[in-house]
Computed example of a mutant assay.
Amino acid sequence: MSDQPYQGGQPYQGGPYEGYDPYQQQWSGYDQQQYGQQAGYDPQLTQHWQGQTWETQTHASVQMPAQAEAGYPQPQPFEGQYQQQYAAAYPAAPQPHTQPQPQPQPQSEPAPAAAAPEAGPEDEPAYGPATLGGNARITDAQRARLEGRSPIIEPGMQPALLTAVLGLLLAATAPVASFALVVPLVLLQAVTAAGWFRLNGMWPARQGIALAFAGGLAADVAVLAAGRDHVPAAILGPLGVWVLLSLVLQLRSHASPDERMYGLMATVVSAALSILATGYLGADPHAVSVGAAAVAVAVLARALPLPTLVSVVVSLMAAAGAGIAVGGMTGTGAKGAALGAAAGVCALIGHRVASYDYPSRFVHFTAGVALPLSAAAPVVWVLGRALG
C-alpha cells in the first residue's frame, strides 16, 4: 500500500486511504444508534459531518419526540457524559456533534386580561369633589356626557333647603334694621362670588373671588353711607370701579390670551352679581320680605320630583301665593302677588343657570344656593319702588 494519496482519474483500488476515519463506520452504526436512542433523536435524521468545518446554523433542528413533549427528562446530562467517554476512548477522532436541543418557544400572544367587573351605580358617589385633577371615579355628569344626555343637572332638594333658609333670613331681618340685613346679605354675596367662578370651571381663583366679594362689600358700605335715596349711585359707582379693577387684574396675569379673557368675563360677572345683590339693602324692607320669601318657596317647589313643565308652573304659583301671604302681613296687599311672581321668575332663571354644563356638587351648594336670590335682588328693588 502506497503512502501517497490517490491521484488521477482512476477509481481507487485497495484498502482505506490515510484520510479515512476507521471509526466513522463504527460511530455511524452502533454508537450512532445508541446515542440517538439515549438522546431522544431519530438516527435517520442525524447529520453526517465531513470534517471540522460543519456549521450548525445551516441545518434545521429536528422536532422533539412525543415522549419529550410529554414531560420526560431531557438527555443533556447523559449527552455530555457520553461525549467525555468518547473523547477519552478515541482521542484522535473528532468529537461527534449533536443536534441542538430545541428550546420551548414562549407564547407570542399574552393571555387576555380578565375584564374588571363594572361597578354598580349604588357603589359610586353622586358627584365628585371639586379638585384640580378631577375625580377618578365616574360622576353623574361624566356619565351624562358619555350617554349623550342633557348637560342640565339640577341642584336638588338640599341646596334648595339652604336657599330657603337664606331667603327666610333675608325676609325676617329686613324689617328689623339695615345692619341686621347685612349679615345674611354678606353671606349671600360670598357664596355668589365663589359659586360663579366654579360654575365657569375656574378653580381655584382666589384673587377673582376675593375681588368680587370685595366689590359686594364696597357696595354695601356705599348704600349704608348714602341711604336708600341714593341707591343707584351707591351701586353703579362700585360696579364701574370693580370692572376696571377686574381688567387690571387680568392684564397682570401671565396666562394665555384666551384664559385671560375667560378670567376677565368670570370676574366681571361675579363682581356684578355680588354688587347687584346689594339691592336687598337698598329696597323697601317690606318688598325684601315678600321677594325673599317668594324665592324661598319657588326654589323648594322646583326641587320637588315633578316633570319640568309642571314643576315650573307649580313654582310660579307658589311664589305668587307666598307674595300674597307675606304681602298681607306686611301691608303690601295684592301687589305682593306680582312682586312674588316676578321674584319667582328670577329665582327659576338663577336655578337654571346653576344647573347648566354638568355642575359639580360644589357648584350646587354655592351657585345653586345663591343665584336664585342674587338674580331676584334687582327686581325686588325696582318693583318695590314702583309698587310703593
Rank of each mutant, 00 (worst) to 15 (best):
W203G: 04
A225G: 08
V191M: 15
A212T: 08
R198N: 13
Q207L: 13
V191E: 13
G208K: 03
A193W: 00
W203P: 02
L224F: 09
L211S: 06
N200V: 05
A226V: 00
G201T: 08
L217D: 02
Q207G: 14
L188W: 02
L199W: 08
V183Q: 10
V183T: 13
V223F: 01
V186C: 07
V183I: 15
A226R: 11
L185F: 05
A205W: 03
I209G: 01
I209A: 03
F213H: 04
W203V: 04
A222T: 02
A193F: 03
D220I: 14
L224C: 07
V191T: 15
N200I: 00
Q207C: 07
A212E: 07
G215K: 04
A205F: 01
V186Q: 11
A190M: 15
G201K: 06
A225E: 10
A190D: 07
A226K: 07
V191K: 11
A210H: 08
F213S: 07
W203A: 07
V221T: 10
L224D: 03
M202T: 13
F197S: 00
V191F: 15
R198L: 13
A222H: 03
F197V: 01
P204T: 12
Q207E: 15
A205V: 01
R206Q: 15
V183H: 09
A225D: 09
D220W: 08
A210V: 12
R206S: 15
G215R: 03
I209W: 00
P184Y: 13
A193L: 04
Q207H: 14
A226H: 06
A219M: 09
V223W: 00
A214N: 03
W203C: 05
N200C: 13
L199I: 10
G201H: 06
V221M: 09
D220N: 12
I209E: 06
R206L: 14
D220M: 12
A218K: 03
L187V: 14
A219Y: 04
V186E: 07
A205C: 00
L217G: 05
A218T: 08
A190I: 12
L224S: 10
A205H: 05
L185S: 03
G201D: 05
A205I: 03
A218N: 02
L224V: 11
P204W: 00
V221R: 07
L188D: 01
G201S: 12
A194E: 14
A212C: 11
A212P: 10
A193D: 06
P204I: 09
A190P: 10
V191P: 09
W203K: 10
T192N: 07
L188A: 00
N200P: 07
A218F: 09
F213A: 13
A222C: 05
L185N: 02
G215N: 01
A210D: 09
T192D: 08
R206W: 14
Q189E: 10
I209V: 15
F213W: 01
A205P: 03
A225T: 12
M202G: 08
W196C: 04
L185K: 04
F197N: 00
V223D: 03
A225R: 13
R206T: 15
L199R: 11
V191A: 14
A226E: 02
